[in-house]
Design a protein around this nucleic acid. Structure first.
Lengths: 195, 195
DNA sequence: GTCTATATGTTGATAGAC
DNA sequence: GTCTATCAACATATAGAC
């Protein structure tokens, strides 16, 4: 428990990850050097290896942390009653969460190919678990006769792609408020799936 | 006009671009070396510089050619009569074209950040021109009272993101035929925008 | 048109001093 | 916990032979 005098390990570790996230998201994993990350943190390149075994593990940690983050926040999100309310909650949650974690979201679908097969499989499983959350809502609504979708898996992919797309163009202080954007997407999604 | 004996310039150039497209799409621009491209073509690394001034120009050429390709094919696509038919044509075209050019499509939104600002501006303008094609259809339908979208620009981005998303999961010979996928997406898009 | 050889710089990662 | 110094491998791009 005792904190060693002069030690920064409890603070430098998170700073390394924060710098890596920012740089990987901006320039791409392969284009960022360990020296760049170190410079951003304010240490020498060699010191980074106190916090990560290698560059690949650094990427994996970021993606893993993000997926855990998404899943735990969605689990804690209030979902109202019934499939209609749950779908609305999902749309709102996905847009809001994606916009507040823009870098991590971007990284999570841009850098999957730079993961080792083992790491990729882990991230992919978490991603599927998240998709399953939406698909379950669509299936419930379908069973209740509220929704009418020809294929719930396909509708799931379509909706998530549509929502995540917001990240590519939305800018704070732009023409539309985040709340208005959520509202409009909610409307489009509802109309696309309702019976 | 005369073709020099022993010359391969008219065939090696396209092969260089084809190899670059494939490798860039698979591993990412920054992760692919000129040596890898050369090996794929069957020449030495130095020989590549007979066909491109540098690696960056090679990327730009691929993205530029793809955008020109999209725009000219869409221009030649039969669109039927009225906004409803035009929207259906767009959905079908975008999915079919994206699936048959999967590597180029993938590259076109993954590697924008590796373009110089000047090259980026050119590609961005072409991309916007394509988006404007869909937006014009939505505006026509809106004016005719056939569609009811709160914001045509936003609906444009939503639809394109949704359609392009097909590329991330569709596999030839999978559960659904390409034709069936086009049909389902057409249905979802129609319901999302119709009055 | 393609090769070999090379200049020049950068990379990820490690060893050992402090 | 961080630094300096370093290694071996790899990068892009060019020069000049054939």
């Amino acid at each position: 428990m005792a904190r060693k005098t002069g030690s920064h390990s409890d603070i430098t570790g998170p700073r390394v990850r924060a710098a890596a996230l920012q740089l990987f998201a901006r320039d791409g994993f392969a284009a960022v050097s360990m020296r760049q990350i170190a410079a951003e943190v304010g240490v020498q390149a060699g010191a980074l290896y106190l916090y990560t075994p290698d560059k690949q593990a650094l990427l994996f940690d970021l993606l893993k942390a993000h997926m855990d983050d998404v899943l735990s926040h969605w689990a804690a999100e209030p979902k109202g009653t019934g499939p209609q309310a749950a779908l609305e909650a999902f749309v709102r949650f996905h847009i809001r969460f994606s916009l507040t974690r823009a870098e991590a979201v971007f990284l999570s679908y841009m850098e999957l190919r730079n993961l080792t097969p083992e790491h990729f499989a882990q991230i992919e499983a978490l991603r599927r678990a998240y998709e399953d959350q939406l698909e379950a809502i669509l299936e419930d609504g379908q069973a209740a006769g509220i929704f009418a979708v020809p294929d719930t898996k396909l509708a799931t992919m379509a909706i998530i792609a549509m929502l995540t797309g917001v990240n590519t163009w939305y800018r704070e202080g732009g023409r539309l408020s985040r709340d208005r954007v959520e509202q409009i997407y909610q409307d489009m999604v509802r109309r696309a799936v309702q019976a």
